[in-house]
Amino acid sequence: MGIKKITVIGAGLIGGSLIKAFLSTGEFDVTCVDNDEDNLKLALNDGAKVISIENIKEAVFDCDLIFVCTPVMDMLNIIKDVISGVKKGCIISDAGSTKGWIMKNLAPYIKEDVYFIGGHPMAGSEKSGYINASANMFKGASYILIPRMGVPEGKVKALEEVISKTGALTVIQDEFTHDKWTASLSHLPYIVSICLSSSIDRGGYEDDILKMSAGSLRDMTRVSDSSLNMWRDICATNKEQIMANLSKFREELDCFTQILEQGELKDIENYIVKAKDFRQRLARIKGY
């Protein structure tokens, strides 16, 4: 395979889970870079080498593969800072939820003998930090790869082989396709969740009223508690696709509002049945 030394920059939920997954195989020499002492201590206890962010260049000069697992808008400066110090043939990947922005802005800084392959593991939770990381985070999950034009097929295959060790299933896409469908399947659900949370919060309900809420509110607002920095950057770097999806969602709200105004029970029932059918289809596909 050729890849033995891996450096993970950013030991939060995703970066920490990659570290744990790679360490669990016993096949890799893993270095963790972070600015949080608690994250570094936990990674050290798991068997990783640890280096503070101030000494980041020490962690990358001889590694075969680098994963940058920070909020999207931090990635550019990190990669620009380290790229001159990595060895020839090194692969750099990321774990960001948007791809067009980083692929475009990083292009002028990539050297001919260093290979950037964008990555996005379709896994995670509303929790954050290494303390919530899991070696099993990626098992059965799709892991999207977006190679830059000109990256040799052998480098892509090498990265796919490493990622397969986490239990994830790799899918090759381009950045435009990726950002379009993640806006629908990942980003829109988050926006709906935070808007629902904000709407109910504006209602001014006292704690004793909120205490009576049932599981549906818990489930619908769960992802509102996700990483602030991560989602701030996702919204900023994929705003066109997100706004297009919000427009479509607004049309659905208007449609159901009209159905309610007309008050026809059959129309209400048909709309609900259609939604139930989709949920059941999704459950079959995903194995919920």
Rank of each mutant, 00 (worst) to 15 (best):
L228A: 09
S93E: 09
R281D: 02
A214R: 11
K111D: 06
N132Y: 11
Q280P: 00
A43K: 08
A95P: 06
M1D: 11
C69K: 03
E112R: 06
K155I: 03
P71F: 04
L106C: 07
E58L: 13
L185T: 14
A135S: 13
E112D: 14
S93Q: 05
I272G: 01
M220H: 08
K111A: 01
D64Y: 10
Y190T: 08
K111L: 01
P108Y: 09
K4E: 08
E54D: 15
K5G: 05
D81V: 09
E37Y: 06
K20M: 15
I272R: 07
F22P: 01
Y205Q: 00
F249V: 00
D207E: 11
K5T: 10
K165R: 14
A214I: 06
D201C: 11
A135D: 09
E160R: 04
K239T: 15
E58Y: 05
S97Q: 04
L76G: 07
C255P: 00
I117D: 03
F28H: 02
R222K: 05
K157C: 00
L159G: 07
Y271E: 12
E240Q: 14
M220S: 15
I146C: 07
M73I: 13
L210R: 13
S213V: 15
L18D: 04
M149V: 10
W101Y: 13
T166D: 11
V50H: 00
C90L: 06
L246E: 11
N229S: 15
P71V: 06
W231M: 06
K49L: 04
Q173D: 08
K165M: 04
S226I: 03
V223N: 07
D38N: 12
A158K: 12
V8E: 02
A236S: 11
A95G: 14
I51T: 10
I268K: 02
T177W: 10
A133C: 03
C63W: 01
G12Y: 07
G124M: 05
R281Y: 10
D174L: 00
A168W: 02
F67L: 14
L217F: 15
G100R: 15
